Amino acid sequence: MISEQPAQLSWFKSTYSSGEGGECVEVATNGTTVRVRDSKKQSGPQLAFTSGAWAGFVADLGRDGF
């Protein structure tokens, strides 16, 4: 678990997200840590991953059967 609080981060949504306010997450990175949050509760809790763990997760998304 990563417990440091980031300084200013630039958050972004997937290009697949619509502008209609549906279920969506936002992602930000500082180079070593990737953070994920609910786009509707921006001041709420965040998940934090190492860059390597996030890269593995994203790679698995593209595989059949995920």
Rank of each mutant, 00 (worst) to 15 (best):
S39G: 03
A7S: 14
M1C: 06
S3C: 00
E23V: 12
P45F: 06
Q42S: 15
A59Q: 14
T33N: 01
T33G: 01
E20N: 13
E26Q: 15
A55D: 12
V58E: 09
E4R: 12
T50P: 03
D60T: 00
F66Q: 06
L47D: 05
A28L: 08
T15Q: 12
V34W: 02
V27N: 07
G19Y: 01
G62W: 00
W11S: 05
G19I: 01
F66L: 07
G31E: 06
K41T: 13
P6Q: 09
S39M: 02
I2Y: 11
G65H: 04
L61Q: 13
G44K: 04
Y16H: 15
M1S: 15
S10I: 04
G65F: 02
F49P: 02
A7Y: 00
G31D: 07
Q5Y: 00
C24V: 03
R37W: 04
F12N: 12
Q5R: 14
Q42W: 00
F66M: 05
T32N: 13
G52S: 13
L9I: 03
E26F: 05
G21Y: 05
A28R: 12
R63F: 00
A53T: 14
N30P: 01
E23C: 05
S17Y: 03
T33E: 02
T29P: 02
S43Q: 14
R35H: 14
E20R: 11
A28Y: 09
G62R: 13
D60M: 03
G56D: 13
V27W: 07
A48E: 04
E23Q: 12
V58G: 10
D60K: 00
T33C: 04
V58I: 15
R63H: 10
G19S: 12
F12Q: 15
T32R: 14
K41W: 00
D64K: 07
P45G: 15
I2A: 06
S3G: 02
Q42E: 12
S17F: 02
G31I: 02
G44V: 09
L61W: 03
Q46C: 05
A59K: 12
I2P: 01
T32P: 00
W11H: 07
R63A: 15
D64A: 15
G22Q: 12
E26A: 10
V36H: 10
W11K: 11
L9G: 03
T50D: 11
A55P: 00
S14A: 07
Q42F: 04
G21M: 07
T33D: 01
V36K: 10
D38Q: 06
G44C: 08
E26P: 06
R35K: 03
Y16T: 06
V36P: 05
